[in-house]
Amino acid sequence: MTPDLLAALTAARAAKRPVVVATRLPSGEQMLLPSPDAGPELAAAAARALDRDESDTVKLADGAWFLHVFNPPQRLVVVGAVHIAQALVPMAAQLGLNVIVVDPRGSFATAERFPNVTIMTDWPDEAMDALVPDARTAVVTLTHDPKLDDPALDRALRSRAFYIGALGSRKTHAARLKRLRELGHGEEALARIRGPVGLDLEAVTAPEIALSILAEFVAVRRNAPLATKTAAKAAA
């Protein structure tokens, strides 16, 4: 890889721009896409790879190319700078997630409790409006406080967030769904919320609960059969 290409790739990643490094095989000639210099066939293949978020070798009319996808990291918005969040945040960073902790309660949302992550002390609805959750964003609410959780879930349901989880017992969750219904959300939208959040591991401690949440998140991210099973649990 040439220094110029590496510099361009590093700059694109720092700017969170989705790019593809295309390598012609076996010669090793490389190009950063999207680029005006790319042929239409290669450009289209790179766009598809970005969309699927999968690197792969493709055979085109001019030969084989390896398309290495560099999408910006998925984001995890954690609402509630609580004890479980302290366990969840470092584990999520290990999974390659860009984590944002939202909590208007300044005594919870401190850099001391949450080193090396983005902290927002806005109200959750305002924070969510600023963050603009997209199809590469996950949202987990952990406060147990409807004043904080509900506005975040309301905004999450209006977005394309691919994973939405809410901490709380079945009973708490039923009450939450009732309140969100009153805000105008239909059953199909409400079914997007994974509540109680996480795989059912009978988790007890904060790190165990964090693990169950991230285990479910990975199942969704990787389209595992478990992901649909856990979606059904809310309806059951």
Binding site: L6, L9, T10, R13, P73, A93, G96, A111, T118, I119
Partner: peptide, 30 residues
């Protein structure tokens, strides 16, 4: 919003690590 630095290093960001090594004068292959 407070943006803490440095951003968490992704556990699997090997290329970024390789680039750091290169910048530090190492001879690197990926």
């Amino acid at each position: 919003m407070t943006d803490a630095t440095p951003a968490p290093q992704q556990a699997d960001d090997i290329l970024a690590l390789a680039a750091q090594w290169r910048a530090a004068g190492e001879q690197v292959a990926v």
